[in-house]
Design a protein around this nucleic acid. Structure first.
Lengths: 238, 238
DNA sequence: CGATTTGTTGATCTTACTCAATAATCGTGG
DNA sequence: CCACGATTATTGAGTAAGATCAACAAATCG
């Protein structure tokens, strides 16, 4: 027993394990943090979690379901900024502003934990590991956002879709869910929007990836038939 | 005297003021932090600050000059990730990994402050304001990265260049430099790369913006003739 | 001063967008 | 459960924005 798997460490309250990264909080520390987290807040499909511009008080951890964040541009167009799956943390971009910069909406029935930022901030003064933990979470988000920048700025439509699916697969698998078979929680429009593509392009590429026997797609159900080829398509380094 | 201007607060050591955001550290706290910051490290043009994959120990604040960060993709292409001007902080994406994810290179003769992350992290346990400060800096980076994602994913070449120049203008002006006349520290190729465009497109748009009397460009010297129009071009909300 | 890098402009080509039509799926109420 | 309308997905045809290729000009550097 060297390092415990951070995702299988049990926890008393909702979503705490969701905040874990390797080498993180110990059980005692988790208990303390646990007590500050407000329990699961269930959201129906299409219900708002918060609206852009609203005062920021809490981060939210997804326990189940899925959430998208988006903003509305000058011309009234929706711009999808991110998708959040179980175990992921929403609202890290709002700490500086003290306002949410985007709106957040449930893509399906979802349950969430509300984590009052003041309290986490306060606690992280005494629990050094928690502070380290928060720094890492924020840093990770920055790294991932930068990776997405490159994806959107430099890659073809095919590479973007492939990388997107590959990324989803990894995120599900990190939470002990199937890496090969899953249900897309978002509609095609959202995927296209997120990746800077037209819906039609997205649809065509789904079709093409199926023809190449890389995927099997049935509506929102996706099965990755050839992980290796998908990865090649995405030109990911792994 | 309500709130002191965070950028004009004097400080003993290099670059500390560069880390400031509104409502930040007081003088005493700054002195403490100051003492942990390693003094200016001068870099010649094209000198590396760090290489991608190197162990992360320090953040760097730009005191003067300019730095770009970039990675090299599978095909050996450079991918520009960010530009850092005086007062900006490099390396926030490396905290989680404990390795730099990108390489950083001076675009011109630059001086930097090295800020050992361990020490800042340690100090931020006792100086609550410093912790808050760090959270904000990280959060701000996330917000800005997300804005860039939208810029690159959803906007035309013209909008991207306009927004880029507008953004540079704002960053210079925030540091008491001219918002209308400045020298681009990076070559066209870097701008194009950063914005997900071809150099030729970038060049053509610089020309177009000049024809429309929005800019005056002479090599790297830029003069913004019509801030308002530039902003319209960028379709920025302000 | 010549060599190399960087910047500009033109012509052509390609990827992905737009528009349009149709099909499938979802959601709601009977 | 089915029928209905509304939303979402797919496919095709034509177009446009921006990439690529190529040539040359200007700036930078040793």
């Amino acid at each position: 027993m060297s390092q415990p798997d951070p995702y299988t460490v049990s926890c008393n309250a909702c979503g705490l394990k969701d905040l874990c990264l390797p080498y993180s909080l110990n059980t005692e520390e988790m208990d303390i943090v646990d007590s500050t987290i407000k329990r699961a807040k269930p959201l129906q499909k299409n219900q708002m979690l918060f609206e852009s511009g609203a005062p920021f008080n809490s981060l939210f951890a997804v326990r189940s379901g899925a959430v998208k964040t988006y903003s509305i541009d000058g011309k009234g167009n929706e711009q999808v900024v991110g998708f959040y799956l179980p175990g992921e943390l929403i609202g890290l971009d709002a700490i500086e502003n003290k306002r949410y910069n985007n709106s957040a909406k449930a893509l399906e029935t979802s349950s969430l934990c509300e984590i009052p930022f003041d309290k986490i901030s306060e606690l992280s003064r005494t629990i050094g590991n928690l502070q380290t933990h928060m720094y890492r979470l924020l840093s990770k988000e920055i790294r991932e956002d930068q990776e997405l920048q490159l994806l959107i700025g430099k890659k073809t439509a095919e590479e973007r879709i492939s990388a997107f699916l590959f990324n989803l697969s990894q995120r599900y698998s990190a939470r002990q869910l199937s890496a090969t078979t899953f249900r897309l929680p978002m509609v095609r429009t959202d995927i296209a929007n997120y990746l800077g593509l037209a819906v039609e392009t997205t649809s065509r590429i789904f079709t093409r990836l199926q023809q190449q026997a890389i995927l099997k797609v049935d509506g929102k159900e996706v099965e990755i038939l050839d992980h290796h080829k998908l990865c090649q398509m995405a030109h990911c380094e792994t």
